[in-house]
Design a protein around this nucleic acid. Structure first.
Lengths: 123, 123, 123, 123
DNA sequence: GTGGTCTAGACCACC
DNA sequence: GTGGTCTAGACCACG
């Protein structure tokens, strides 16, 4: 469900945060649902538990997650709306990436081809 | 000729490298031409000369530039071909950025909107 | 493990790069192993951390090292093969040095004497 | 008679100085002979005249060349002996190059093979 | 004027 | 603890 690319320049904890927000944005996780336990997630992603913990802690500070008595992190009430705010950040990042391609000499048709291909190969 | 975005998360020296490769890819700079002197470029970009020097040195190691002490940096012979290969790398990076957006929950229509806007605002 | 000659005309960072490649070529360091931390190595070699960092960064760009923030630098997968190719480069450099001696008037017996002496004094 | 490698890391003026000393060491030029005119040499080597001039000036300071009234640089009296001293410097440089190869992981048999090959291909 | 190197010290971010 | 980046300023050497 959650995918991580350890070799990406993007920080792992950011990938985790983005991934969780994504699951909510797509409706695969809803308010009140339990987020995967830190340890299990760390094992599944082959990542240091501290890194997952950090991601969760930051999401908690943003009010996106809530830790309940009796254990477990749960998706907070306003999570969906927040996830949409997160989208703005994503749009911004994507825009930067595109501008970087432009500065590197990539032409617009090239860029659109890349978009097209990525879309097709995703399924 | 060369533009830099100091607020971008992309490292300045990498932006310079991409920029130079871009100029060659677009044909604005050709094999044998002299690249701008490190210090001048540093002043123009409002950047520390060391940063430019780093970029140039790395381009030299790649065989993209040839530098002679006291004689400036010159675009190497196979530079254009290399620049085209560099484009492949850019495409790859862009693709990763898009996939990253997807994992974060950005929908395809959103992505295409971002592409469109960036294109328009560029001029 | 790694030795540097600060009085050599060869740049320190290049010596570090060559040294690391050498350790891999000799099998003392293998794919996946962690390279010495930048700061520790800097202290050990009595060199500025920036210098080591430069060497490591360039080795990363070559795909010889993989560096993760906070996770140290690790010998990359294809490192050994690369190291062997690097040997070719060394042979080439050495050859140029010899030709340079020849152009300066050094006779062949002289050259072989130098080789012999260097070999003996090394231990 | 004199060969220069503009892409070598060795400074051009040093190559010129070494080359001249070499010609004397080999007996192709003798005390009292006229050294090639700066301009002609610069043209022949495709090098900046200033660079040749600098080399000649330094050789003059060392007492290896003498500029005579009426123009022209001539090989000085004690030139041959000096050329032999220059050989010591060459030996030292060569030694450094060999040590550098060693640090890079080149084995002794490899080194001797390189020496052998270079010797054969010279003729 | 040019490039090349190193040092020093600071800042940020990740694990 | 780790690496990454940038700035600042110095020094050297070539053309």
């Amino acid at each position: 469900m959650l995918e991580i690319d350890p070799r990406s320049p993007v920080a792992i904890n950011d990938q985790i945060k983005a991934g969780l927000r994504g699951l909510v944005a797509k409706g695969l996780l809803r308010s009140g649902d339990q987020a995967p336990p830190i340890r299990s997630l760390a094992v599944a992603l082959k990542v240091n538990p501290n890194t997952v913990a950090r991601a969760f802690r930051e999401l908690s500070l943003e009010g996106f997650l809530e830790s309940r008595r009796g254990g477990g992190n749960h998706i907070a009430a306003g999570a969906r709306r927040q996830a949409k705010n997160g989208l703005d950040e994503l749009r911004c990042d994507l825009r930067e990436a595109i501008e970087q391609s432009r500065r590197g000499g990539l032409a617009w048709p090239d860029i659109e081809t890349v978009v097209e291909r990525t879309r097709r190969e995703e399924v």
